[in-house]
Amino acid sequence: MTATVERPAEIVPREPVNKGREGWVRRAPLLPALVFTIIVTQLPFLFTIWYSLQSWNLVRPGSQQFVGLDNYVNVFTDSQFRGVALNTVVLTVGAVLIAMVLGLAFALLLDRQFRGRGVVRTLLITPFLITPVAAALLWKTVLFSPTYGLINFVLSPFGAGQTDWISAFPLTSVMVALVWQWTPFMMLLTLAGLQSQPHDVLEAARVDGAGSFAIFREITLPHLRRFIELGIVLGAIYLVNTFDAIYMMTQGGPGTASANLPFYIYQRAFLGFDIGQSAAMGVVVVVATIIVSTFALRLIFRSFQEES
């Protein structure tokens, strides 16, 4: 007699019924949106790549011809391009970090109770609500102007009211205007972070013997880390594309001393009419931006995952 030992049937995941068709039925209505998105974002990019392989200057009609990677070689050997790229990094990183430090300081002030807190908060947020062009104009004329600017007016009693700030420090001037406009954003983000901090943890730290500074360093700052990272990444994404402030305040000058990449590409394309060259620059910038932002976004998503 043979005893049949029954093996337990192996369990395999069951295929969902009609998986493929279900998926299509559900997603088909989204198709027009997808097509539209591809047309308005991906096609222009493909055109740009095509232009970047041509020598094509609008000022000389009929000059269009295929030159392969020549434009790219020019981009990387162009010392002006490198200077402008450096400007972009300095302007973006500088403005974001300074705005973050100031924003955090204001957030810490606003996180405590005092009379008139609502008014102060509104006033501190206002710069963020102003149209960037108007803000740049404000800084250029009302504050920085050598003849009737408020800064020189305030400094004149001390005998130092003659500086033409924008000519003397073009990149710094632009950065100041950007910091002024972006500090409220950083402040709001970090204030949200501060107010989401559980009270009992802070009280526990007090009982455990921590002073104010120790609490800030040991408890508050680690808690704020993801808010700070989020602010830095979002701020950088916006500020790397800064155009209006530069256009209004300095026109990128003197020379290219205060130009960043978007402004420089604009100059080459619409003032120099060099389509091929500026298309190549655009492609390089897009690729570089994708690489940098991939790392930056991975950073914030990681720290958010850690938290939740």
Partner: peptide, 21 residues
């Protein structure tokens, strides 16, 4: 006298552990 000079230790209802430590 501030908390930290009282030489006491407290256990909170929701424990109040330091989440980043």
């Amino acid at each position: 006298v501030p908390s930290r000079d009282r030489d006491i230790a407290m256990v909170f209802q929701n424990y109040a552990l330091y989440p980043n430590k």
